[in-house]
């Protein structure tokens, strides 16, 4: 049973932007999804995590009806998947390849996507100005898109995704190649969207980013291994705080700690001790009398590494 199942209760459809049950998908003999479930509440930033090829992009495309499922049930914004086109006007998709017409200007690209959503006239002009502001590229409006730098291209692609003020955003690795300053402002913007009640689904391989999400869904072997907040995921992975100590006579001290049932690793005169309860840290320190020490919080990266194998 994936962790969080008890926490999230039995999902009420309208509290969730996306609900999926028992989803399977094979590409010929390759079984990509094998009984996947997914629960994405409204108004959160939700990060899909998983190793390359674990099916994140496939699941995302399936949620939009771009990939047919073999079996299972999916609801997106309360609509079953076979009526997904009803909510297309409320979706914003940013594929892993950046979907722009390189021979058009930035403005022409934005106008094109606006037109597909029926946004025209001065409403369109306002919206274009607004999304260019978000990606901080108002000055590129008249440039040929194909001539932009990689990161700018990426940012314009995000701008196009925002043009219809979507209720549900599906962003496939949106921050690849983006400079740290812009990345920071993107995340601020995503959080604001969530605060306004919009749902942002993101895939990323950058753990610091995943850590900022309200929820992460960890995919492995075609299943949803866990769906929870980043902190809970770390606990789920069995990660503990780690006490890092520089000690004299490390060999003997290590034996002592191991005898007490603690998990210890040694590297030269450094000892790394996993400690579940914060209260024990002081006690261990008092006895070991390290010359130097540090308490290391577990990272999502540790969880990822642990859950991926």
């Amino acid at each position: 049973m994936p962790m969080g199942a008890s926490h999230w209760q039995m999902p009420e459809k309208d509290e969730y932007a996306v609900i999926g049950r028992g989803i399977t998908k094979s590409f010929e003999s390759l079984h990509v999804l094998k009984g996947m479930s997914v629960n994405i509440p409204r108004g959160v930033t939700y990060c899909l995590l998983g190793p390359n090829g674990s099916g994140k992009t496939t699941l995302m495309r399936m949620i939009m009806g771009l990939v047919k499922k073999d079996s299972g049930e999916i609801y997106v914004l309360d609509e079953p998947l076979d009526r997904i086109s009803r909510v297309y006007s409320r979706l914003g998709y940013m594929p892993q390849q950046r979907p722009l017409y390189p021979d058009l200007t930035v403005e022409e690209n934005l106008e094109f996507y606006a037109g597909l959503y029926g946004i025209r006239g001065h409403k369109m002009a306002e919206k274009i100005a607004e999304v260019l502001q978000v990606v901080d590229l108002s000055q590129t409006r008249d440039r040929i898109t194909g001539m932009l730098s990689g990161g700018m291209y990426q940012r314009i692609s995000l701008a196009c995704t925002l043009i219809n003020s979507p209720d549900l955003l599906l962003l496939d690795e949106p921050t690849v190649g983006i400079d740290p300053v812009t990345k920071q402002s993107f995340w601020g913007y995503f959080r604001n969207l969530a605060a306004e009640g919009k749902t942002v689904i993101i895939t990323t391989h950058i753990m610091e980013e995943a850590e900022r999400c309200d929820m992460v869904g960890f995919m492995r072997d075609g299943r949803m291994l866990a769906e929870s907040s980043p902190d809970e995921l770390k606990k789920f992975a069995g990660l503990k705080k780690q006490l890092k100590m520089k000690v004299e006579d490390p060999e003997q001290k290590m034996a002592l700690l191991v005898k007490e049932g603690l998990e210890v690793r040694r590297d030269g005169d450094m000892l790394f001790v996993d400690i579940a309860e914060a209260s024990r840290i002081r006690e261990v320190l008092d006895r070991m009398k390290p010359t130097d020490f540090d308490v290391v919080e577990p990272t999502l990266e540790n969880a990822f590494l642990k859950l991926s194998v």
Binding site: L66, Y93, M94, R98, P99, Y101, L116
Partner: peptide, 11 residues
């Protein structure tokens, strides 16, 4: 270039 996919997810 991925535009078809994106265009198909519009009205």
């Amino acid at each position: 270039q991925g535009t078809l996919e994106k265009v198909l997810v519009t009205p």
